[in-house]
Amino acid sequence: MSTTNGLNLTLKVWRQKNDKDKGQMETYQVSDISTDSSFLEMMDILNEQLINEGKDPVAFDHDCREGICGSCSMYINGEAHGPGREITTCQLHMREFKNGETIYIEPWRAKAFPVIKDLVVDRSSFDRIMASGGFVSVNTSGNTQDANAIPIPKADADKAFDAATCIGCGACVASCKNSSAMLFVSAKVSQFALLPQGKVEAAERVQNMVSQMDDEGFGNCSNTGACEVECPKGISLDNIARMNREYLSASVSADK
C-alpha cells in the first residue's frame, strides 16, 4: 500500500466521559489514512494512536461492519452516517473525503437518545417502543401455518418488506430537526399493518407504539423529509403517512 497517497485529516470529535459529564469537542490529527479505509477503520486508527499516547480511546458503537446491524451511528460533517446515501457509517469510505479536510464527528443528538460515552448513545427508547407493540402475537410452537397458505398481494408484500428493512439505527431521529422518531415507528407499524398476520392487532399496536414514542420525548414530524434522505435503508415517507392514517382511524374506531 502506498504511503504517499494517504489523507491527512483534522478530526473534531465529541468527547464525553459519561452521561453526567458535560462533554466537549476535541481536535485530533490523523495522517496517511488510506482512501480505501472505511470510516470506522479510520476511527480504529485514531484509537490506536490515542492508546499509544496513553489516552482514552474514542468510544463508538459498531458491530457487523457490513451495513445491516444498525449499531454504528455518528453524525459526520453535519449528516447522519456522513455524506453518501443509503449507507451506514461502516459503509462510508475515506475516499469521500479530501486531503487536509476537517471532519466533525458527533453522537446522535436527541433527548430520547442520551449520550453514554463519547459517540455512544442509549437507543433503548427504540426497544421500549418495540416492546409496546412492535410484534405479532402468533403461536410459533411447532404448528405454524405455511406462509404460502395466506394469499398476500405482491405489492403489499413488497411494501411490508421495504418497511421491514429498517435496522433501527436512529439516523432518522438524528437527522430530524425535531428529533422525531416517526420514520422508525412508522416503518415498524407498516411492516405489520400491511400483512394479514399483523392486521389483527394493528389498531392497538399503532396506539401503543405512538404513545410510547411520545412518552420517550421524541419530537413531532414537520415533513421536512430529512429522515428519508438520510435513512441507510431508504425507508419512505409513505410509511409516516400510513402510520398517520392507522393512528387516526384507530383513535376513532378502537374501544379505548
Binding site: E79, G219, V229
Partner: peptide, 20 residues
Amino acid sequence: KNRNAREVKYAMNNGAANST
C-alpha cells in the same frame, strides 16, 4: 416541544443536504 426534544445542538449540522 420540538426544540425540547434536542437539548444539545450539533456543532456542525448540514440541513441543506437533506431538506429544503
